[in-house]
Design a protein around this nucleic acid. Structure first.
Lengths: 197, 197
DNA sequence: TAGCGTTTAGAACGTCCATTCTGAATGCAG
DNA sequence: CTGCATTCAGAATGGACGTTCTAAACGCTA
């Protein structure tokens, strides 16, 4: 098959994302991408350029999916901000544990050798966007007196990001969703305003 | 050079560890290991068996170094347990930030493809040992009323491990020691017993 | 210094894989 | 049906790298 239309290209990128997520950049061979996408090898090359470009497209697709789910939850004015943050982690943890392949971004960030500059640039952008979303949510929580005043908004956002990255590593080595949710929940309890008993 | 004595072998393992840490398993070629160790290629093969075995020895060496530093700090009865934990993180963060290569264990855990069973086994063992050390330290903290009672000992240990893994990812993408220490310190503040103002 | 086992440096081998090429198959226009 | 451009599957290419081989250099013993 040849990627004539844009939607066919999207399908190919999605399939490639699965391959890279499951197998990593180095270990995934073009042959596997060909099998997974159903695209002709030569067609893949003319459409994307090479393995690297296919991967970059797949990484973008991966992030856009997560971004959409994260922001939808975090920006929802109906939900209490800390609940929204919990939903985001619940989603990520469940997904990572089910697949056992961790987080694609996290895997590639710690991948062999120095990072490809384009990949590094994308990861910075992605993380910054998520950081801003956390900060917004934490600010809303603070204004509702739901946040432990011991921790600053910035520190909280940084902690959430670090936690998510750490959970990505945990997931890759086969940690259970229950264990990971436990780590998150106890952290969130600490971050929340201490309740008067 | 040929690794005749045990100490020469240790030197080779140490040099190999540096190469794998800096470049990752896949990207590090035997040629680089040969250059770094100063050992003859053929001698390396007869001494270790192959790339995989050299790597396993390097991973063990990496862990033993960290283990020794971690446990020395955590088991020191002269130091307040939370201070000991902070020293451990301070060391790890400084080292990771200086080198910019993150944490070897963390890098290999998230590496391409499914984990080599022997590597996975080692990582489990390493993490379990560190977890126990954290638990001991947190128990001492608890008995001194220095721990926030909202969080259980087990959850605290799991959080510390997840945090360390997350910081490893951060370091790989070039985070500064200051930023990483900030994340850790605010977390430790949350974990500590809330002070009466 | 002569003899001999060890060590070395680099060539050679085999495999794997990204990428390109090619000749056959396909689909479509007239 | 015919002619032509596109698409296809698989072979070919080129390079990288782990591993092994080999002939020369080395160093020890006597």
């Amino acid at each position: 098959m040849s990627p004539r239309s844009q939607s066919e290209t999207h399908i190919a990128v999605h399939a490639a994302k699965e391959v890279f997520w499951r197998r990593g950049y180095e270990d995934a061979s073009i042959e596997e991408v060909v099998q997974a996408t159903g695209f002709n090898r030569y067609a893949l090359y003319t459409a994307f350029g090479g393995k690297r470009e296919i991967f970059l497209a797949a990484l973008d697709a991966y992030y856009q999916e997560r971004r959409s789910i994260f922001l939808t939850n975090l920006d929802d004015p109906e939900t209490a901000p800390l609940d929204a943050i919990r939903r985001v982690f619940e989603f990520a943890i469940t997904e990572m544990a089910e697949r056992g392949t961790g987080c694609l971004m996290c895997n590639v960030a710690t991948g062999a050798g120095p990072l490809d500059p384009l990949v590094a640039e994308r990861i910075e952008t992605y993380l910054e966007e998520i950081r801003c979303a956390y900060i917004d949510a934490l600010e809303r929580a603070q204004s509702r007196n739901e946040l432990n005043p011991v921790m600053s908004i910035e520190a909280g956002a940084a902690l959430l990001i670090t936690l998510m990255l750490g959970l990505g590593v945990h997931a890759k080595r086969g940690a259970s969703a229950t264990a990971m949710l436990g780590v998150f929940d106890s952290t969130l309890t600490l971050m929340a305003s201490p309740r008067v008993q």
